[in-house]
Nucleic acid binder design. Structure first.
Lengths: 209, 209
DNA sequence: GCCATTTTTGACCAGTTGGTTCAAAGCGTA
DNA sequence: TACGCTTTGAACCAACTGGTCAAAAATGGC
C-alpha cells in the first residue's frame, strides 16, 4: 500500500491534463472565470465535457491548478535579482525579463490579473505567504543597495510594484495599448519601444546623481 | 411632437437609474461582467428584477451605460495637462491626480480594467477614437517639451502608459498590494508612500541632466 | 485472444440565468 | 373622485450552467 501516491499518473493522463490546462488557459484568460464554461474548455481541448471531468474534479479544480502552476514561473524574474550584481544593471535586467514574460505569456498574465482584480479569492494565502516573503527579501536587498548609495533612496516595495505594473500593462491592457498606438506598430516594434522606455525610466529614475 | 426627446425623463426616473448604476458598479467591479447577475444588482439597488428591467433594457445596457459614463471622468486628468505649465510639474501633478482617482474611485478603475482585460469588446471604438485622439494630442505636447530640452527625450506614448499602469495598479491590484505590504499600513500611509515614490520616479526619470 | 482496468461518451439532471407577462398598485391632475 | 399614465412585483419561461451516470469503447498485461 502506497499512502502517498497510490496511483502514479500514466503518460496519457499527464498528456490529457496538459491539453486541458492549455485549453483552459485560453478560455479563462479570454473570458474570465465567470465567463468561461466547461463546454467551451472541453471543445477547445478536443474532448467531451464528461471526459474533461474525468481528469479534473470541476471548474474550480482546473482554475486553481492553472494558477498555482503559474505563480512559480511568475516570480522567477524577481528571484533572479542577484545580490552580487550591479544594482542598476540588475533592475534593468529584471524589467527586461518581466517585459519579455508579458510578450511571451500574455494569457498567463491576464489570467493572473483577472484573479487579483476579483480580490484574489483563491490565492490570497499564496500572496500573503510565498509572494510576501520573496518581496520582503528582495526589498531588503534593494534597501541595502540604497544605503550603500548605489541606488537612489526610495521605497523598495513600491519600486517592485511599479515594475510589475508597467511591464504587465503590455499584456493585461494589450487591447488598449494597440488601440492607442494604432495599427502601424508591429509586435516587435511595440515591445522594443516599451523596453527602451522602461529601461531608461528606471535607470535614470533610480540612478544616484 | 418632440422627435429628439419624446419623453423627458422624470425626476424619479433619473433617481432610480442612478441608484441602479451605483449598485451595478458595486456588483460588476467586484465580480466582473460574467460573474454579475441581475438579481444581485437588483437586490443591491433595493428593488425587484423586473423593476430594474423597467429602467434598463438588459444587463448589457446597464454595463455599457456605466462604462461610457466613466470614460470622461477617467480622461480628465490627462486632459488637464497644461501646455503652459512647467513640464516636470505638470507630469508630477498628472501622476498625483491619477493616483488620487485610484484611491477615490477604485470600483470604477476595476470595472474599466476588467473591460480592457477582456479585450475591450464593448468600448473599442471609444479607445480607437476619443482616447487615441487625446493621447496623440498630449504626446505631441510632450514631444515639444522634449525637443525644447525641458524633458528627457523618451517615447511620449509609453510614458503615458507607464503613468496609467503605475497609478491604476493601486486600485486594480489592491488585493495584491495589501497582501504584500501587510496589514500594518493604513490606507493613507499606503497612498502617501506610493505618491512619494511615483512622483520621484517620474521626476528623476524624466529630468534632463 | 482474454480479461481487468482505464478512458470516453451520449443522455440526463437540478439549479441558475437573463428576461417576460400581466395584473395590481401608485400618482399627478382635473 | 375619477382618469390616464407610470411604477411595481409574483409567477413564469426558455436557455444554459456545472456536474452525474451508466454503459460502451479502448487499452494493456498475460
Amino acid at each position: 500500500m502506497d499512502a502517498i501516491s497510490p496511483k502514479p499518473p500514466t503518460r496519457i493522463q499527464q498528456e490529457k491534463r496538459e491539453r486541458i490546462l492549455e485549453a483552459a488557459l485560453d478560455v479563462f484568460s479570454a473570458h474570465g472565470f465567470g465567463g468561461a464554461t466547461l463546454d467551451r474548455i472541453a471543445q477547445a481541448a478536443g474532448m467531451s465535457k464528461p471526459n474533461l471531468l474525468y481528469y479534473f474534479r470541476g471548474k474550480d479544480d482546473i482554475y486553481t491548478a492553472l494558477i498555482e502552476r503559474l505563480l512559480d514561473r511568475w516570480l522567477e524574474p524577481l528571484r533572479a535579482l542577484d545580490p552580487q550584481g550591479d544594482p542598476l544593471q540588475e533592475i534593468r535586467a529584471y524589467v527586461r525579463r518581466k517585459l519579455e514574460m508579458s510578450r511571451d505569456y500574455p494569457r498567463e498574465s491576464r489570467l493572473f490579473a483577472g484573479e487579483i482584480l476579483a480580490g484574489a479569492p483563491r490565492i490570497m494565502p499564496l500572496l500573503e505567504g510565498e509572494l510576501k516573503e520573496l518581496v520582503d527579501d528582495k526589498a531588503m536587498l534593494l534597501e541595502r543597495w540604497m544605503a550603500q548609495g548605489r541606488l537612489r533612496a526610495a521605497d523598495p516595495r513600491h519600486l517592485i510594484f511599479s515594475v510589475w505594473a508597467t511591464t504587465q500593462h503590455y499584456a493585461d491592457f494589450d487591447a488598449q495599448v494597440r488601440a492607442v498606438l494604432g495599427p502601424e506598430w508591429s509586435d516587435e516594434e511595440r515591445f522594443e519601444a516599451a523596453a527602451r522606455f522602461l529601461e531608461a525610466l528606471f535607470a535614470e529614475g533610480l540612478r544616484t546623481r
